[in-house]
Amino acid sequence: MRMLQFMCLAAVGVLAGCSDQDVAQTTTSDATTDPATSYVVDSEPAGAIPVGEAREAVEDEQAVTLVGTIGGSAEPFVDGLAAFTIVDPKVPYCAEEEGCPTPWDYCCTQDQVKDNIATVKIVDDSGNPVASGARELLGVKELSTVVVDGKAERDEQGNLTVAATQVYVRPSE
């Protein structure tokens, strides 16, 4: 009898699993085909400075426009929040022909990443991080080059975070 219950549960599980997958695929598909949200702008904001320069010049609470490449670690995106890290475009990463599976972690140039990395969090009108993954919200992925416009947050350790309200995604070359 317990065996029968187990088999029935397994069958229900398989069916439920299939339907969940369908829903997830549909959602992802919709989001990726329509990334144009209120946070994404069509034209590149002027006067963007690279991350390395910003880390030296920008002060806390200062308005800033930053350009960078999404990466810096094996998982540059924050799950469940529209936040990610960007690296100065001048820092090289592994070329495609080198066969590195995760070139966005800058494994060969980690010593340069330390002083050329910033965190970007997309914030809503009240200043809170948007509770949605950046991939779906902005239609970006690892190594996408983005120009973000927002307010800088600095700490005593020199870390730079940009509370961004606008993001421009540069078309891939």
Binding site: V78, N159, T161
Partner: peptide, 12 residues
């Protein structure tokens, strides 16, 4: 995700 964001912000 709040903890993850903290870790991303404190790159040092």
């Amino acid at each position: 995700s709040e903890v993850s964001l903290f870790c991303k912000q404190r790159t040092d």
